[in-house]
Design a protein around this nucleic acid. Structure first.
Lengths: 173, 173
DNA sequence: CCATTGTTTCCGTTATTTCTGAATAGAAGA
DNA sequence: TCTTCTATTCAGAAATAACGGAAACAATGG
């Protein structure tokens, strides 16, 4: 496959965005390419299209697989692995959020609990500081509780709720 | 100010999290420190506490100010600038989201529109690819529309909605 | 088995980012 | 005006991350 101008723009921009969110450029580019590609691509071809080393593609695909963003597939009569990514963007979003939660939010909650516990009866930590740590913990717990409930809803409900936008506010009043 | 063990843990972890989200370690550490600090801190003191160069603190504070996460303040009889950060975490979240939207989402939408336009009558871009670009654009527009409506609600309403959790789903059925 | 094809790992190189210390600029007070 | 205190800028050093190529490894088919 040869990239058209707009495909190239898409892929390059995605790579750029990746770096701003803590994902390296190659990884993000590969993800973008797979998202656009109508058919699964073998690593070799990804390397060619993006002009990066085959080994780099291998590493990046492993990374993407660890994020559950890329799946393996095979074509008849072809020994090579082919790769695809989720094309349902709602599902994609949920996967990314879930994965980041597990990798970053959960450990952060653990650290916060540890901080709050440790500070509890430590005379070196000012009262106000304890209060702020506790507030941060509570805040993040509120958000994750909300997240857990939202993620459990059927996807259709979720989409419908979002499309309602501000109208949900009526519920509160 | 001297950091207690739990304060140090908090600050270090925050720094670590920063790097995972595209914010550099010093910037995130300074933000964490200011969040904990009961009173505004001068740059000099921040440098001492965190053990980083004064110049680095200056740069990082500028960065934080550009994100609207840090404000300047002054103490009587002290020529030095002092710095504080938002302690209302809802407000903090909104600020970060708004800023990232402006810096990353809006430009991405622009690029996506450009991609879709350009691909429109370009024979080199397969039909399916066009469809996927369009789907991405629609998806991100749906999310930002939702965001714009949510952010307009009074903070109390927002909090209340979130605390309701999955119960809002009743609205849909 | 062996040859071939495909994949991953490893390590040195390159590129990028972050950080520091020195120099500079700017304010405030004497 | 001169001095002192504070803040910023900047060039290079240090640290980190990304990348490529070679070699090792694994799987398949003959």
């Amino acid at each position: 496959m040869e990239l058209s101008a707009s495909m190239e723009r898409f892929v390059l921009h995605w790579g750029e965005m990746g770096t701003r969110w803590g994902v390296n450029r190659s990884v993000a580019q590969i993800h973008a390419l797979l998202y656009l590609s109508p058919n699964p691509l073998p690593a070799e071809e990804i390397a060619e299209i993006l002009g990066i080393a085959r080994s780099n593609v291998s590493t990046s695909l492993k990374e993407l697989q660890s994020w559950k963003l890329v799946r393996l597939s095979h074509a008849l009569g072809d020994r090579r692995d082919h790769f695809t990514t989720e094309t349902d963007l709602w599902q994609l979003l949920l996967t990314i959020v879930e994965e980041r939660k597990q990798r970053e939010i959960d450990p952060t909650l653990a650290v916060l609990r540890q901080c709050v516990d440790e500070a509890e009866d430590d005379p070196h930590t000012p009262k106000e500081v304890k209060r702020r740590m506790t507030r941060m913990l509570d805040f993040m717990e509120t958000l994750t509780t909300w997240y857990r409930q939202m993620v459990r809803l059927p996807k259709g409900t979720l989409v419908a709720l979002m499309k309602m936008g501000g109208k949900v506010a009526k519920l509160v009043s």
